[in-house]
């Protein structure tokens, strides 16, 4: 799988309370959740996000609660992939289990940059300065879940 998308840049420790505030958790409808995505960190997010955009952040992305509403909201807002220096572990699981592509990568990426991401080969190319960087693709076990399209679709493999 390969994607190309424009970067929306955030910092370290983007927590699930700012990704989707708890006051909106009385629903699990992806569209409703997407309408409030990033609201407490970046109120303009929902206005500026375009389908295919890529969120790039620092360390510990998705820390905090286990709410799967967070990757669901991000995915439903049109984001094609989240790239971060590191992910909080429950967010990491939830992203894999719900089919939101994520990449652990630390490089010089700025707001507005255009990136190509090649998931199978673990390569990121930045159009701004035409630099390339590498990341470690998922282990085979997790690739199977992702390729199957989520945990439940991989049920046979997992038994």
């Amino acid at each position: 799988m390969k994607i190309t998308g424009k970067v929306i840049r955030y910092g370290d420790n983007v927590d699930t309370d700012v990704i989707i505030p708890a006051r909106h958790l009385n629903t699990s409808d992806p569209k409703e959740l997407a309408a409030h995505c990033m609201e407490d960190l970046d109120p303009d997010f929902v206005k500026k996000v375009q389908p295919g955009d890529i969120i790039v952040a620092g360390k510990n992305f998705g820390c905090g609660s286990s709410r799967e509403h967070a990757p669901i909201a991000i995915k439903a807002s049109g984001i094609a992939c989240v790239v971060a220096k590191s992910f909080a572990r429950i967010f990491y699981r939830n992203a894999i289990n719900t089919g939101l592509p994520i990449v652990e990568y630390d490089g010089d990426i700025r707001d507005g940059d255009l990136l190509d991401i090649d998931f199978a080969n673990g390569v990121i190319r930045n159009h701004r300065d035409n630099t390339q960087g590498r990341f470690t693709p998922f282990p085979e076990f997790l690739q199977k879940i992702i390729t199957a399209g989520g945990l439940f679709k991989a049920k046979e493999i997992m038994q």
Partner: peptide, 27 residues
């Protein structure tokens, strides 16, 4: 496992417990 991040609480009793998401919980 619990679909709540503070499921890690039960380690106090010598159990392994950890928070997961809703898909893990359903599975």
């Amino acid at each position: 496992i619990g679909a709540d991040s503070h499921t890690c609480t039960y380690g106090a009793l010598g159990a392994f417990s950890t928070g997961v998401g809703s898909t893990d919980m359903a599975f």
